[in-house]
């Protein structure tokens, strides 16, 4: 069977360990960003991307607010990329991007684009790339104890509690013009939140999902705009 999947002639993998640990009322966070590019990219005026969540039929669903966040972030900043609203795209191509039926790999693109009306409808929306988001933010640990009390003379808290979150996401980028897998980017953000309390609790919250959203959006924009590579 013929495969149109592009071979990574110049595959490269950049690993960035952003030791961006911040402890300014924001807990501790570390980020790891990866990119793998199979083919040259680029986007012309009038072309757009669509950002979709991987099917929940395959397992755990990607958080809808994370996908919305990436949609918004990709359209902002110096490297912004035009984004076609995901629901508009899914409705226009119904039923081909419904969770049960959506293509599972870029190798299915030629067959999909050969279906009556599909290529024409995608062209009408100006969509050049499909970006599939997969992953979750999950609590991975925690401990400590904190108790609060209130009485006639006032109230207060005493103790220390903490928890860890891992936000792990990846985005597969399919080039509809080349009908191939252009590559992928990923972001892993580990955050530790804590609440020390000596009468007054002082929450130090690590916003791991928000950080992963910004990291992913930046990676996706650079991946698409930079013909030879991302960050």
């Amino acid at each position: 069977m013929r495969s149109d999947r592009a071979r990574p002639a110049k595959a490269w993998r950049a690993a960035l360990v952003a030791g961006g640990a911040g402890l300014l009322l924001a807990g501790c966070m570390t980020s790891r960003l990866d990119e793998s590019k199979n083919t040259a990219t680029g986007i012309a005026a009038g072309e757009s991307i669509v950002i979709l969540a991987r099917s929940y039929h395959k397992g755990k669903a990607v958080e809808e607010d994370l996908v919305s966040c990436i949609n918004e972030e990709v359209q902002s900043g110096a490297q912004r990329v035009r984004v076609t609203p995901q629901q508009d795209f899914i409705d226009a191509l119904f039923p081909w991007f419904e969770p049960r039926i959506a293509p599972q790999s870029a190798e299915a693109l030629p067959e999909l684009l050969a279906r009556p009306g599909v290529a024409k409808r995608i062209e009408a929306h100006g969509v050049r790339y499909i970006v599939w988001i997969d992953g979750r933010t999950e609590k991975t640990g925690g401990g400590g104890s904190l108790s609060c009390a209130i009485g006639p003379g006032g109230g207060g808290c005493l103790g220390f509690t903490w928890w860890e979150d891992d936000a792990s996401y990846d985005a597969a980028v399919w080039d509809l013009q080349r009908r191939s897998d252009a590559g992928s980017v990923s972001a892993d953000v580990h955050g530790t939140s804590m609440i020390p309390a000596l009468i007054i609790p002082l929450p130090l919250i690590a916003r791991t999902q928000s950080a992963a959203c910004k990291d992913m959006a930046g990676q996706i924009s650079r991946f698409i705009r930079d013909p030879g590579g991302g960050s």
Partner: peptide, 13 residues
């Protein structure tokens, strides 16, 4: 709605 769309997709295809 998503369940109905899922069924609709199966019927259509």
């Amino acid at each position: 709605v998503l369940a109905l769309r899922d069924a609709a997709a199966t019927i259509a295809v």
